[in-house]
Amino acid sequence: MPTAAPPIYPIALQHGLVLGAALFAIGMAGALTKRNAITVLMCVELMLNGVIVTFVSFARHAASTDLAGQVFSIFIMTVAAAEAAVGLAIVIAVHRVRNTVQVDEVQSMQG
């Protein structure tokens, strides 16, 4: 009796990877052009989300079932949370000292 062919997962791996690349590229465009420091932080979160989508797509399509991609995604989220906390603390500290949150007005360390 021939074994039935395994069902094909309806979403190709490439589609998840392209979605991750799109989120990364959009976030990068924002991080390069935005003037408000908080918006820049949001765009960095977008970039991190693009990478997480890539990892989860690989975890879904990998031959192994140890879910290494999802474990990596948890570590990325940890770093993202730490980055958001410290980044916003820096924004608030800069606002207290310089009275601005615009990244192009804070350039005293520019050579």
């Binding site: 190709a12 990877l17 690349a21 990068m28 465009a29």
Partner: peptide
């Protein structure tokens, strides 16, 4: 900035689409 981000997306997507991936399990 739009050019740089767009180039990154296009290059990444092109590599993803043209690469040979192992068949999904």
């Amino acid at each position: 900035a739009a050019l740089v981000a767009g180039a990154i997306f296009v290059i990444t997507a092109a590599v993803v689409v043209t690469s040979e991936w192992p068949r999904s399990v």
